[in-house]
Simulated scan of single mutants.
Amino acid sequence: MAIESVVVRQRVEDLDAAVPFYEKLTGSTASRFAFAGVDLAGVGPFLLFAGSDEAVQRVAGVAATLVAADLDAAVEAATAAGAEVVMPVQPTPNGRRAVLRHPHGGVFEYVGPS
């Protein structure tokens, strides 16, 4: 299992206002989508999200997103090492995801291709 990259998660009040800053900062074009009532934009290594307090609570408790080429292997290795599955692997608009709590308390979203 290998984590290929880490995506920094950032809540913003106004996604439309925030995206241009992160596009300039990273030299990347935002990829926008919605999930579970939350508006999101992936810009380089950042995942910006906005929405009502109730909706963003579903994503705000996660420290970071860990990207793995083989999501199933990553989840299996993490659980074998003591992580707890908070949300099992499921499809998303951009692939698949799972949420795990590491043995020392951190909660992380793991994502991978479909």
Rank of each mutant, 00 (worst) to 15 (best):
L48V: 10
V8C: 04
A73W: 11
F46R: 01
V89T: 13
R101I: 03
P91M: 07
Q90C: 05
A81W: 05
R97C: 07
N94Y: 14
R9P: 01
F49G: 06
S114K: 14
A2G: 09
P20D: 02
A80E: 15
H102E: 12
R58A: 14
G42Q: 13
V6S: 09
P91H: 11
L66F: 11
K24C: 00
Q57P: 03
V12L: 01
V12W: 11
L66S: 08
P113N: 11
S28W: 05
P88C: 11
F35N: 13
G61R: 09
E109L: 02
P103M: 03
G51W: 03
V86H: 02
F46A: 01
M1I: 03
F49C: 07
A30G: 10
V56H: 10
A83V: 00
G106A: 15
V56Y: 06
H104N: 07
P91I: 14
V62P: 06
L48Y: 01
G82K: 07
T79F: 06
D53F: 04
L25N: 02
N94V: 14
V19Y: 09
P88Q: 10
T29A: 15
D72M: 06
R32S: 06
G95I: 02
S28L: 04
A81R: 11
M87V: 13
V59E: 02
A83L: 08
D16Y: 03
V75C: 09
A55K: 01
G44Y: 00
R97I: 09
A60Y: 06
A80G: 15
A81S: 14
A69G: 09
T92L: 11
K24N: 10
V85A: 10
V59P: 05
F21T: 13
A81T: 05
R96P: 06
T79S: 04
A18T: 03
L66N: 03
A74Y: 02
F21L: 14
A78E: 00
L25I: 08
A73N: 07
G95T: 09
D53M: 01
G51S: 08
